[in-house]
Nucleic acid binder design. Sequence first.
DNA 1: ATTCAATTAAACCAAATAGTTAAATTAAAT
DNA 2: ATTTAATTTAACTATTTGGTTTAATTGAAT
Lengths: 207, 207
Amino acid sequence: MVNSIQTEDKILIAAREVFIREGYDGARMQHIADEAGINKALLHYYYGTKEKLFTAVFERVFTEILNRIFSLMEEQQSLKVFLDVFFREHITFLLSDPRLPAFIINEVSLHPDLLSNIFGKFSSYGIEKFGMLVEKEKEQGLIAPGTDPLQLFINILSLSIFPVVIEPIIRNVLQMDTKETETFLRQRIELLPEMVLASVRKENSKK
Amino acid sequence: MVNSIQTEDKILIAAREVFIREGYDGARMQHIADEAGINKALLHYYYGTKEKLFTAVFERVFTEILNRIFSLMEEQQSLKVFLDVFFREHITFLLSDPRLPAFIINEVSLHPDLLSNIFGKFSSYGIEKFGMLVEKEKEQGLIAPGTDPLQLFINILSLSIFPVVIEPIIRNVLQMDTKETETFLRQRIELLPEMVLASVRKENSKK
DNA sequence: ATTCAATTAAACCAAATAGTTAAATTAAAT
DNA sequence: ATTTAATTTAACTATTTGGTTTAATTGAAT
């Protein structure tokens, strides 16, 4: 045989490209075959149906992203350091592939059951790590005791992901060009750590 | 004639429902006709093509949302009041129609040109109002002089919209049910104003 | 009473599309 | 050398789908 595992992967890469670019409903098996440089027959030979292929792609993409996010939270010395690293790595990554988050958001919201199969393929270990970091800084009196780690984590994700996703809207509403919006979004790498820290500093607690 | 304007609107409402639920590529003209309680022929009699119908729906939905957001920023006495009102109104609205933001985000990211026709149908007047509010509070020494109104505004949008959009993901990753995630999201109505304020308070400026 | 737009029903068309099939070819493994 | 999996080509099927057509009906406006 010529390869097989190589081809399987080539297909997965092509399918990922096309599905992310066009969405599940918009994607065509023929496009995927073209992108992979093979024919439709071979596509079905490997993955049977569009749905199976999509599931394979989606699971891969989703766990990749989750791992990427969670891996950034391993053993950080401080919230400050974590925020610096996280916003830099994450926003840079998002800017390199801005269609990705919109794809995931949309597909999950269209077919919430997509996730049920994935569950268990990754751990929420990363979130626990983050929770421990928050608790540590609480004890050190650096951040307000009322701070909910999960809410804080969601805030951090929101502040990094959402602006990149709505870049086309920002660009249009504010009449900017892509260069300007990119500058605007990159600024956030510097702005966000300080702003998030300020939002949880102990003095600000109203409790 | 029997009605016409009534029908035109009935179609638009049905199309909105179906397009938001299924996306442009996933939506079927037959579904829209069914939803409107008419037949396909009449659908095309009024709106010609799927694309025209979609454009009509999208423009309507998009300007609605933008107006909703911008109308909340008219003449607020203070940032504090604005934040209280905004997060309450906006998050409540989002929770009542959680598929809507994902729809807009996805369609815009798939066809950025959708927006070009819409531009001019609304003003960025709301943002200017918000900018003035920020400047006023800067002069009063309430918030840090380095604060960029636009970045702040994007932060506010991110913090309200994004968590609602990724509710299915939160639910799955953290093994919650819909009741729990809704409670979690509603908590944010109370948490966010204080947290945003803290992030821009003068003492925190590092400048 | 007649006209004319609104509406329905149903068949129809053409294109696109997911998926299949069958026959031939290639090349690695035994 | 033979087997067997991988791959191609190309035609084909069945279904879906956007859109059209035609003939008939309804009902308001003139």
